[in-house]
């Protein structure tokens, strides 16, 4: 009656063999294709390096003016702009300017990639139910799998560095853009699509003139979430070589530097709030004309 008290599990030896076989196979794959996969991601690395070089190499006053400019264009709100200025000045004054620039450039690259991949994927999901049925479970896995788990194969394949870190962040942060693009397009009013059809729109015209513009506020909400999630990954990504505000935090944890941790932590919170407020008020302005004022 063993099986009643003990779960009847697989034979230990067999289990060990299975794990070994899979590990061996993946290691073989890494040895055989690691280099070619690395070349595949070379453009991504160059993109990251360029973005980082721009943010850290340009005189701080220009970058500062640029950030203020973007905050103004995005929010059109003096309060948000003032808060942005104060936050950035404090960050610089407390000696975290360089790391912050590295983090911002990483978030920027990650957001660009998430948009470039996520929006077309979301459109495809809205268009084909089959596509949605395939992609949705994948997104569930991407969002719930502990990030350390997928860091293992990424590091095995690409080693420690910017690109594997970026991939880890993108995997974690991209799902909201995909999901909300899909949702936004599916929620477009049926009568609007009928009108577009009735005037003889092609599929492309319908997408460009009706579906994307009407889904845009929802898509913006997805982009906002993606940025927030990318920021949340900064510390974990620094474990595999992504530079920026995450690394001092990591150092603070291992050496028990309380103040170092708190300062960098607040810097992350600061830019997170800036990104959030700016992108949210941008999304709100996009929605301005959608609210029905009269009946």
């Amino acid at each position: 009656m063993d099986w009643l008290t003990q779960f009847p599990q697989m034979d230990d030896n067999r289990l060990r063999d299975i794990k070994k076989i899979i590990d061996e196979a993946f290691r073989g794959f890494t040895r055989a294709y690691g280099d070619s996969i690395e070349t595949l991601f070379e453009p991504l690395r160059i993109f990251m390096v360029q973005a980082e070089r721009f943010m850290t190499g340009t005189p701080w006053i220009i970058v500062f003016a640029l950030i203020i400019g973007v905050a103004w264009l995005g929010s059109r709100n003096p309060k948000v702009v003032a808060a942005t200025a104060v936050t950035m000045l404090l960050i610089g004054y407390f000696g975290m300017w360089e790391d912050t620039m590295k983090t911002i450039s990483m978030i920027f690259v990650c957001t660009v990639i998430s948009i470039a991949v996520g929006i077309p994927l979301g459109i495809a999901m809205a268009r084909w139910n089959r596509m949605q049925a395939i992609v949705n479970p994948v997104l569930d896995v991407m969002q719930t799998m502990p990030s350390f788990v997928y860091l293992i194969p990424v590091v095995m394949l690409l080693g420690i560095g910017k690109v594997p870190g970026l991939i880890a962040v993108v995997i974690y942060a991209m799902p909201p853009v995909i999901r909300l693009t899909n949702l936004g397009i599916r929620l477009v009013d049926k009568e609007m699509l009928e009108a577009a059809d009735a005037f003889g729109s092609s599929d492309w015209q319908k997408l460009k003139n009706v579906q994307l513009p009407l889904a845009l506020p929802t898509i913006m909400a997805g982009i906002n979430q993606t940025i927030m999630m990318a920021l949340a990954m900064v510390v974990i990504a620094s474990m595999i070589g992504v530079q920026g505000l995450g690394q001092p935090v990591l150092r603070a944890i291992s050496n028990q530097y309380f103040t170092l941790g708190v300062f960098n932590g607040f810097a992350i919170v600061g830019i997170a709030i800036i990104f959030d407020r700016v992108s949210q008020s941008f999304g709100k302005r996009l929605q301005k004309h959608s609210e029905v004022v009269h009946g």
Binding site: A195, A198, S201, L286, H289
Partner: peptide, 21 residues
């Protein structure tokens, strides 16, 4: 059919169906 809709017909809808943006 697309050509026919573009050149031969036009439609007006109960709930207007105007693009809000």
């Amino acid at each position: 059919l697309r050509d026919f809709r573009r050149h031969k017909t036009a439609m007006v809808f109960q709930k207007f169906a105007l693009l809000p943006n």
